[in-house]
Structure formats: structure tokens, C-alpha cells
Amino acid sequence: MSAVPTPGRAVPFALSRAGAPAAAGLRLDPWLRRLAIVLSGALLPLGLFGLWSLAVQRGWLAPQILPPPSLVWQSLQELWASGELQDHLLISLRRVAWSVALGTAVGLPLGMLMGLSARARAYLLPSFQVVSQFPVVGWVPLLIIFVGIDEALKVSAISIAVVVPVTVNAYKGIAQVPRPLLEVARVYRLGLGQVLARVVLPAAAPSLFNGLRLGVMQAWLSLVFVELLASSEGIGFLMVWGRQLLQLDLVLVGVLAIGVVGVLLDSVLRWGERWVQRWRPAGR
């Protein structure tokens, strides 16, 4: 018959140590899973880097076509030390910020209007569904006629790419607001402003923030394309300049910068989205 510890009686050594490994294992398991996920995600980049290095060493491609990793790293250090890379990135990020602000200023009211009003939805939604199918490149020739090829072209084209996800998510988020909440607001005779502030916006906040996150990512992707077409500064221009000079190391530096900044933007916005959605468990 096993000994049962009683108050005032010391727990046997074997019994006190028995649960320690299990408790430690429970604490380590989440970290091990995260480490496994990180390592799994690093396999493909490491494999591509190894293939890149092997191709350069064996001479499978000419250095003018595939520069060695050491040259790309050296170019990255030189551009960073001179401040040129930071200047191009800041210019591109400023364009993204203006475009997100303008696209949200148009898309958010449009989506809210279609979500709140059946009449507005009947008039606007079919046309919006057709227009939203146009890619950004399809708008560029038309925008050149009206705004030229200067900064207004870039901001206008990128803003159009932002409008679509912001509008769609605002419309869906408001359309999916539980009807009982609206009925309660009607019973308490809340005004339109109070309904929006106290009922609609809190309930649709996750969808609205998701639309903002998608809009920012669409803006970043569209920015590179627009800068490749017509620009004299920015990260896309840096890539075009490197291609024209046949310095593909500059092109690869631009590719790396675009990927790193895109991942950072998406990570920050995902964290913000999770922070916004913390109210859901409490609401339930």
C-alpha cells in the first residue's frame, strides 16, 4: 500500500521528484514545437542558398547572370553604410503610407455604406465587383493621362490597390454584425453615431483590421511594380538601376530588402490584429 502524504509529514524523495520531469517536459514542449517550426521553415532558404553557392563555385552560370553571395553581401553593406538603401526604403515606405491613408479614406466609408444600407449596396456593389477585378497595371495607362508620370501616378495606382481589400472587409464585417445587437440598439433608440461607435465598429473591428492589413500588403506589392515602371527613386528604382548597369547584385539586394520589409510589416500587422481580437474571449 503506497504512502499517502499527510499534513505535517514530509513527502518522500521519490514522490517529490517523480512529477518534475513531466512538468519540465510540459514547459519545454511549446518551445520545442516553435523551434521545429522555425527549423522547418529555414530548410528551403538554406537549400536555395547552398544551391546558389554551389552554382557559383562550379561555374554553372556566369557571374554577370548570377553574382556570388559574397558580392551581394558586400553590395548590401556598402549601400547600407552610404545610407542609399535607407533613403530608397524611406521613400518607398512614405509612398505606401500615403497610399494606405488615401485608400482607407475611400474604401472604409464605401464598405460601411454598402454594409449598412441595402439601397446603397444595390446601386454600388455590382459596379464595385466589376471594377475590383482590374489589376493595378490596367489602371496605369489611364492614370498617366490624368495625373502624369510623377509622384501622383504612383500614389494613385497604389491607393487603388488598397481600396479593394479595405472595402471588401469593411462591407463583410458590417454585414456580419449580429442582428440582435442592432435590435437592442433600436430598442434603446440609439442614434446613428451611437450605433456605429457602440455596436457596429466594435463588432466589425477584426474584419476591419484584417482589411487594413491586406491593404498594407497589397500596397507594398503594388509599390514595387509601380516603381519598376516609372520612378527615379525608391527600392524598385534601385532594382531597375542595377539591371540597366548589369549589376545584378543590386537587383538581389533590392529583392532581399523587399522581402525583409514585407515580412516585418506583416508581422507587426498580425500582432496588431491579434491585439484587436483579444476582446472576443471576454465577450463570449
Rank of each mutant, 00 (worst) to 15 (best):
G83H: 07
W271F: 03
V260G: 03
K154V: 10
P5D: 02
L196S: 01
L201H: 06
S70A: 02
A10K: 12
A24S: 01
V199A: 04
A118R: 12
S232R: 14
L28Q: 10
Q244G: 10
A97F: 02
A14D: 14
S99G: 12
V106I: 15
A22K: 09
R95F: 04
V260E: 05
F128N: 03
E151A: 11
E273H: 06
V251D: 01
S207N: 09
L89R: 04
P141R: 05
S2A: 13
L113C: 08
R213N: 06
Q218N: 14
R274T: 10
Q247L: 08
G173R: 09
E183R: 09
S222D: 06
E227K: 04
K172M: 12
S159N: 13
Q194C: 04
R213E: 05
L66M: 11
V4R: 04
L248C: 00
L208A: 13
L116E: 04
L79N: 08
V263C: 10
R213Y: 10
T167S: 15
W60Q: 06
P30M: 08
L229E: 07
V199L: 00
F128H: 05
M239P: 00
G59Q: 06
A205Y: 01
A105Q: 13
Q176Y: 01
A230T: 06
G50P: 06
S75A: 15
T6S: 03
S99H: 07
A24V: 06
R94W: 12
W98F: 14
G234N: 03
G254V: 00
L125C: 03
L190Q: 15
G215S: 05
E233P: 00
I145G: 00
P12W: 13
E84K: 01
G19D: 14
A197R: 12
A105M: 12
A55R: 05
P45I: 03
L250Y: 11
L192V: 14
I174C: 07
